[in-house]
Design a protein around this nucleic acid. Sequence first.
RNA 1: GGAGGGGUGCCGGAGUGGUUAAUCGGAACAGUCUGUAAAACUGUCGCCCUGACGGGCUACGCAGGUUCGAACCCUGCCCCCUCCA
Length: 404
Amino acid sequence: MDKIKTDFTDKELRYLLKRGVSEIIVEQELVQLLKSGKKLRLKEGFDPSTPDIHLGHMVGLRKLRQFQEIGHQVVLIVGDWTAQIGDPSGASITRPMLSAEQVKENADTYMRQFFKVVDRAKTEVRWQSEWFGKFSLADVIRLTSKFTVAQMLAREDFNNRFHANKPIAVTELLYPMLQGYDSVMIQADVEFGGQDQKFNFLVGRELQAMIGQKPQQCFMTGLLVGLDGVQKMSKSLGNYIGVDEPPHEIYGKVMSLSDSTLIRYFDLLTDVPDEELAELNRELAGGKTNPMELKKRLARDLVTQLHGADAAAQANYHFTRVFQKREMPEEVEEIKVNPGEDIRDALVKAGMVKSKSEINRLIQQGAVSIDGAKIESAIMSYRDGSIVKIGKHRFVKVVITEGD
RNA sequence: GGAGGGGUGCCGGAGUGGUUAAUCGGAACAGUCUGUAAAACUGUCGCCCUGACGGGCUACGCAGGUUCGAACCCUGCCCCCUCCA
């Protein structure tokens, strides 16, 4: 079958183990594993209560892909049991229990996005319920007796909350143990995730050792800052770019990134070589390169990865035309207008604006034009085929129709 | 079992009887500028009528009440949260 790559140049190793990587425990052991020729089992878990993947997650998925390309096996775990506990974050300690159908649906959604980056053919999907579904109280006691409260409190988040007199649910203490047990069940060689997963990964490592398995390596990827350029990309902060978003949306969001985050994005999300990145960075600092051009390159690269080269070219064209040149897009939505009807009403009806008050406000702000002429008052003359422009990039074509 | 805090506009969060469609921040939208859907700056940001001036209506968990007048006071109900044991 697939050949497993065992000979690496220093450069290749550096790319695999440094680029976009935050920490590896234990790096030397991982290097040995890679060179041993063993087909490694790479564990990645996810919580089916949050099925959307964004670029922040993509950093890790790209790593999985890279390991697949040198012959290794990804094992994706659907955390249908741990999802009921909620990963201890302090913010939300109680989560609604999801129905079985809901979990299934979320899992499908997640996987559809996951496999945009990761190779499905080299992935084994496992559900926690395969083993936890049969767990008895005796099993729970056996598992929990392997750890002490002090060990669990070593986790930074628990520790903080403990000392701040904030609640820690008993089930939350269970979370790392369950996640660790997954590693035992699938005999993971390496577990992948963000830096915030370190504690859970280490619990898995210990548990495997106790049971007589070779402890897994912990592979933690770097954090991506979100659109605001300050906080980490996360769904709850709303500063994310979803893997599932349409091409022009991804492209546009990349273009709105703050300049200072550009290189980091290249670093974490593209294959542009380190030397070239360093060079680009120098040019940027020296003002030799226009950040916009670089952003376009980044946007094209990312859209290509997620939607293919054609979509990327199209998104690029669309952006240049609509946003840079402020021309009409190739396709303009049409709205039906009855003869003599106030066009404002038609715009509201078509959902172009939220309310008549809003369109009035926009007119006052000088944001509306018809056939290139700015509208000063609410009296708008138009004819069949007129192009109404609202703001910088909302266009609509008037179609006059009789009836209703 | 005991003690206490709170539910306000898309979100966060002021306001504790009139001058409050409701300070402020964020998001969003628009305008100016620009190398960019970056940044910066300015403005808008409940709904309806009006070209505009202006006017009307609805809103501060829910339901009542007090008052000339309530997000703010009272009563009941619902819901969140924290601490002690």
